[in-house]
């Protein structure tokens, strides 16, 4: 009957597991979020494949080499990779129960995220000013949609992280907030992985061809 008893007491904490997994609800949410990430990854995969099909369709307009700014996208990449690291540190301190350090590292992550978005926006604005708009060609439609979709995800992540940060600051680290910190961290790492693909497929290949 031990299994059943365990099941009946599902809201009780299991202290052998990390804090975010210690309630059944927390564990379910994290597992569910992994599954969500699968769907999001496939969504990106579809847009990636659309980009791959269309990236030579420039309609006599701007080409990848013409609009990509090497310095800009290198800086974006470094910033986002660093922010993934700092977000990981946040989760680490959350597990140790160090609220101050957790808040600090998440704040750093948010600032890095904001600067990433700032750089990306300035890149987009420069492109548009040079006549490289979404309406110009199929290549540019695909470029703005793919990179912009990632940017929207990052923006959403910043808002989300801020909301979780406030909850941790007010309510402390507990079985409700811990899974939230963990999940938003997962989301952030995922966006980093997607960026690595964008960096390779869009920017590197674009520069090389």
């Amino acid at each position: 009957m031990t299994v059943a008893e365990h099941h009946l007491h599902e809201w009780e904490e299991d202290h052998d597991l990390p804090l975010e997994y210690s309630t059944e609800e927390g564990g379910l949410k994290i597992f569910g979020f992994w599954v969500f990430l699968v769907t999001d990854m496939l969504l990106f995969a579809c847009v990636f494949s659309t980009y791959a099909v269309l990236f030579r369709h420039t309609n006599y307009g701007p080409t990848p080499v013409g609009i990509f700014d090497v310095k800009g996208f290198t800086a974006e990449t470094l910033i986002l990779l660093t922010s993934s690291f700092t977000s990981g540190l946040g989760t680490l301190f959350m597990r140790r129960g160090q609220k101050g350090a957790l808040i600090g590292w998440v704040l750093v992550t948010i600032v890095l995220g904001l600067s990433f978005i700032g750089l990306e926006l300035s890149e987009f604005i420069a492109d548009v000013q040079n006549g490289a708009t979404m309406q110009r060609s199929a290549f540019l439609s695909a470029f703005f949609t793919l990179v912009g979709m990632h940017g929207c995800h990052v923006t959403f992540g910043i808002f989300w992280m801020t909301s979780v940060l406030i909850q941790v600051a007010v309510r402390g680290i507990n079985t409700v907030t811990a899974p939230k910190v963990f999940i938003v961290g997962l989301y952030w790492h995922f966006l980093d992985v997607v960026w690595v693909f964008i960096f390779t497929v869009v920017y590197l290949i674009g520069e090389l061809t």
């Binding site: 659309t50 099909v53 269309l54 369709h57 979404m134 309406q135 110009r136 060609s137 199929a138 439609s141």
Partner: peptide, 12 residues
Amino acid sequence: GSHFFTMLAGGN
């Protein structure tokens, strides 16, 4: 006004 699936401007 993008051109993913239009006939003109390179859509497919």
